[in-house]
Design a protein around this nucleic acid. Structure first.
Lengths: 156, 156
DNA sequence: TCCTTAATGGAAATGATTTTCATTTATAAT
DNA sequence: ATTATAAATGAAAATCATTTCCATTAAGGA
């Protein structure tokens, strides 16, 4: 793929810094993640990338996502439908941290940012206290609310 | 099992109220859950129950847990090791609500109750706001912190 | 006790994720 | 640019928690 800029995207240095090589597949996966604000399954990514990169296999998607999750470039979520979902922790534009509201009926997900500031503030304090008390080095947190969305609620 | 009290345990009425029958398997599963404060996998329960109920199959464990989770008698957790964990929401003694600290390295789980009050207070407010804004009927929440426990941290 | 229907278990199916392994390729050294 | 080397890859097979199927059993109202 000769038309790819040699100076690379913002994540090149991160990958290199961790000793990972820049490959066509990783490039494609990260580019796609960066352009989406959805919660994507490994297969979503596989399908989306296929037209441009028919030679990138599903196995590579999984392997790359594992790396990215470990590097904290990507969040992995479990919304209870049996497949993991992935999301860039923050795009080039900067962070847009949010939490999730999960419908236990239809598995619809709502990203919300309301109340996030208060939540994050409290979480940071809690984090500090927990770190000290339990000797954990805390790197991440997960908050999800579960319930029934409007369209599922009316049904008995 | 003739020695079981005819008036039943505290959950009999809950099950009956939802139209479920009281069976040996359900009894055994609930008894075991009530006597444990661990995060149990379906197989943990299967193994634990087997000596007394060799005729209760793993399928029944899964089916029963599904029911209990739907009735909100049991929480289902995903700690990232590929198997769901189950825990009674509250025992006969009353609630002992806690959140979790998960080591991403060795999957050790710490239950903590510190800060819980502040967290729960904030969560309730958030819940109220989210319910109104997004039309969700919120029934549950999940908070987990991820990091490295003391014994995993030293390692590079 | 009888009857209806929920509940069951065991085996087979499912399906997301992981492993294996022979081949390809990024990249540091030449 | 060429080469050497270890990382990365794809395709197929393996894994393994959970679900489904279906013929049989049993709970509990009549």
């Amino acid at each position: 793929m000769r038309h790819q800029n040699h100076f690379g995207s913002w994540w090149h240095s991160k990958l290199r810094g961790c000793g990972y090589r820049i490959t066509e597949g990783r490039e494609a996966i990260l580019n796609f993640l960066a352009g989406s604000d959805k919660h994507l399954s490994a297969e979503d990514i596989y399908m989306a990338i296929r037209p441009n990169c028919p030679n990138v296999g599903l196995t590579t998607i999984y392997r790359t996502l594992d790396i990215l999750v470990n590097m904290a470039l990507v969040y992995r979520f479990d919304f209870g439908d049996g497949r993991a979902r992935y999301e860039l922790t923050e795009g080039p534009k900067g962070a847009h941290h949010h939490h999730h509201l999960v419908c236990t009926e239809c598995h619809k997900i709502v990203d919300y940012t309301d109340f996030i500031n208060e939540e994050v503030k409290l979480l940071h304090e809690t984090e500090k206290g927990l770190s000290k008390k339990y000797g954990f080095k805390i790197t991440n947190h997960l908050i999800q609310f579960y319930g029934m969305c409007a369209s599922c609620s009316p049904k008995k």
